[in-house]
Amino acid sequence: MTVAYWIAASLLALFYLYGGGVKVVRSRDRLRPMMAWVDRVPLPAVRAIGVLEVLGALGLVLPPLTGVAPWLALAAAVGFVVLQFGAIPVHLTGGDRRVALNVALVVVAAVTAWLATVWL
């Protein structure tokens, strides 16, 4: 279970560190080719989502590594499930029907949340 957690958590953490970091530092024009929804969301909200993604990625990895508040890993994984459940309607209402990645992220985050119960 521990190895499975680290594989799933590492994949999620890498994805969200990159995606969140990009949302934090890039302009709307540079985000648009990757994320069609950025025109429908205020830029401060895009930046806030990016910060939450980076913090969540750190929350998946650092608490289990340090042993300090390991329940935060579970909270981060559940947070990513909630985030993606919010992202799917944003994609669908904007005419962007490509939600396969979002569904895959929900599944991986849910499995990670389940595996994180090993740390509690």
Rank of each mutant, 00 (worst) to 15 (best):
T112Y: 06
L43S: 03
A104T: 04
A13L: 10
L92E: 01
L105R: 00
G50A: 09
A4H: 04
Q84I: 04
V82S: 05
A75G: 09
A13T: 03
D96K: 13
A45Y: 02
T112Q: 07
V99N: 04
W119Y: 11
A77W: 06
R26F: 12
V106A: 07
R40A: 15
V81G: 09
G50C: 10
D39R: 12
P63L: 05
R30F: 01
A36K: 15
A87K: 03
A69K: 07
I7P: 03
P64N: 01
W119R: 14
A77N: 12
L65H: 04
V61F: 07
F85L: 15
T117M: 12
V51W: 06
A9R: 01
V103Q: 04
V108A: 12
P64C: 03
V108Q: 00
N102D: 12
A110Y: 01
V82D: 00
E53K: 10
L31C: 01
L120P: 03
V111M: 09
R47W: 00
E53D: 13
A73M: 12
A8L: 15
A13Q: 08
V25I: 15
M35L: 15
P44R: 02
G21K: 12
G20H: 05
L43V: 07
A109P: 15
V78S: 09
L11P: 06
S10P: 06
Y18Q: 11
R47I: 00
P64W: 01
V106D: 02
V106F: 06
V22G: 00
T66K: 02
V103A: 13
L43P: 01
G79S: 08
A116C: 10
A57C: 10
L62R: 02
G94Y: 04
I49M: 05
R30N: 10
R40D: 14
V54E: 08
L83M: 13
L31D: 01
V51N: 02
L31K: 06
K23W: 06
P44I: 02
G21P: 04
F15S: 11
P42V: 00
V106M: 08
F80C: 11
T66H: 04
V103T: 04
A110M: 05
A8I: 05
P44C: 05
G59F: 08
M35K: 09
V107Q: 02
R32I: 07
G19L: 10
T2N: 14
L12I: 08
P33Q: 10
V78T: 06
D96C: 10
M34H: 09
V25C: 11
M35Y: 12
R97D: 10
L83N: 10
V78R: 07
A8R: 05
V51A: 15
L92H: 02
L62N: 05
A116I: 03
A36T: 12
A13D: 05
E53G: 13
V54D: 09
L12N: 13
V22S: 13
L65F: 11
A76L: 11
L12D: 11
V78K: 08
L60A: 11
A110N: 05
W37P: 11
V25W: 09
G79R: 15
A69P: 12
F80L: 14
Q84M: 15
P42H: 03
L62G: 07
G94M: 08
L74I: 03
V118N: 04
W114D: 02
L31H: 02
V81L: 08
V78C: 13
K23T: 04
L74D: 00
